[in-house]
Amino acid sequence: MEQDNIYLPYLMQIEKVTDEAPFVKTFRLKFSNEADAAAFNFKAGQFGEYSVFGEGESTFCIASSPTREGYIECTFRQAGRVTTALATLDAGDTIGFRGPYGNTFPIEAWYGKSLLFIAGGIALPPMRCVIWNCLDLREKFKDVTILYGARTVDDLVYKHELEEWKSRPDVNLVLTVDPGGETPDWKGEVGFVPTVLDKIAPKSQDTIAIVCGPPIMIKFTFPVLEKYGFPDDMVYTTLENRMKCGFGKCGRCNIGKVYVCKDGPVFTLQQMKQLPQEF
């Protein structure tokens, strides 16, 4: 009957640790049990509960794409009790993982359209999953633009992948750092994400915008998208709230009647506008 215990995590082994930015790491994880690996699948946008035994569980997205099979990746910033414990782990160590939970980005519904990804800071990981998912199906989409900003050059995550996207002719990558965060040899933009978005004047026709970032960035990005004519149901974001269970029981992630863990984490701007102001 143990398998009926929905709180029991999979055991996963850390295969690779990548330092992304100060206090930010990526783990590549493999299932310790092959049967778990065979039974597991997920879609872009979903999240999980990652745990260090003895410290507890922490919620973050699956940062790798479902098109890359055989492993999952998570990227986290060392901030609280669990992430501080995670940060001390190395390749070969074992952690717990429950998931995948939550809804997904409707990628198939976007076929034939252009994609505009807008991310800020540590919010690139939940979007990286979607970006790679779409890039692995590149012929299905028209133009792909990625606008990514961080406070400083050092805070940009996935630096090696940013290089790869920059060199691809089928991806238009725009990088920016907040004023004062640039280095002498910085060749990207300097300015906040909404400002840079306005500068690149995105075309809204047949384009899906996916926005992910801190609340302040989201708040100022939506009006820019509106200015360029993006309809509310073509703009997507992924929300986060404190969670414990991940499946609508522990009672803390809801925004009004909407549960971020079950109804989200992926929402359209149209859905966001119907939420009460409590997030």
């Binding site: 410290e55 507890g56 029981k249």
Partner: peptide
């Protein structure tokens, strides 16, 4: 409503 904690 509940919390999940490790005690070790």
């Amino acid at each position: 409503c509940f919390d999940i904690q490790d005690e070790a």
